[in-house]
Amino acid sequence: MEFYCLKNPAVWVRWIMSTEIPDQLLQLEANGGIFAIWKIFQHYGIDLEIADLVQLCRHNNEDGTFGIALAVGLKKLGLEVSFHTDPDPHQHPTEVLCYQEAQQLQIPLQPALSYSALQTCVEQGRFVIVFYDTLEGVGNHSLIYSMDAEEICFFDSFDAMPAQVFEQQRQAEGICRQAIVIDDRNFVMRYS
């Protein structure tokens, strides 16, 4: 896989711009997590209804989605996932319900991953969704496009983020360095 963000930004931007994003997704408030899941399934050539994703991931316009709700949604859609987080002493009631559901679905709940561990997952061909504070101070879920020791690129942004800034932003209050690592090997074998 060629990492256009790092090696050829113009090609990467053209590829992202050529993707037809549904209007319902574009108009959805706080759509980062839903966009990440939609993008993963676009990779497989599977069209998912945005309304179904909203319901599946317990999205609302005020809170968007919670990382654990995205992990539960991905598992229900047939992907193997693990959820990584620092302890969260201030869980929203929706998160509490989703953690219970994650246990029932046997989703591994593991400690937060370091930057280098995230990079290893990406290099191994895993999809990884991370939660971080944008520079505007808004929590955002993004699907990683590529990363190296110096910068990280996301499918929902045209600009690379320096690794140091990303690390700072994922340690903001309430972010808990959350990440979802997706192992699609069994999924790909079932649908190929």
Rank of each mutant, 00 (worst) to 15 (best):
G139A: 13
I180L: 09
S18R: 06
S116C: 02
I16T: 05
T134G: 06
C176M: 11
I175C: 13
W15T: 03
A30M: 06
K7G: 10
S114P: 07
Q178L: 12
A69H: 07
M189V: 08
F35S: 01
V54W: 07
Q104C: 01
S82K: 06
G174I: 14
G174F: 15
Q178R: 14
E2M: 12
T94D: 15
D183Y: 14
L74A: 08
D52P: 09
A102V: 01
M161T: 13
R190P: 00
Q104Y: 11
Q164K: 10
D183R: 13
G32M: 02
A112E: 14
F3K: 03
D148W: 00
N140C: 09
D23Q: 09
H141K: 11
D52T: 09
I16P: 07
N8D: 13
S116V: 00
I180T: 08
E80C: 06
Q171F: 12
E80H: 08
E49L: 09
V181P: 08
Y132G: 01
P162G: 00
E151Q: 01
A69I: 01
V96N: 14
D133T: 09
Y145P: 02
W15D: 04
E20F: 10
R58T: 13
S82G: 12
E136C: 01
G64L: 01
Y132Q: 08
E123T: 01
D86C: 04
H43M: 02
D159S: 14
Q169M: 13
K7R: 11
Y191N: 11
A71S: 12
S146W: 01
A36K: 00
S82W: 05
L79R: 02
K75V: 00
F158E: 09
L77T: 06
T134F: 14
E173K: 15
L77A: 04
E2H: 11
G174Q: 15
L118V: 00
F66W: 14
V11W: 10
E20P: 13
R14M: 10
N31K: 05
K39Q: 08
P108V: 02
T65I: 02
L56P: 10
T19S: 11
L26T: 09
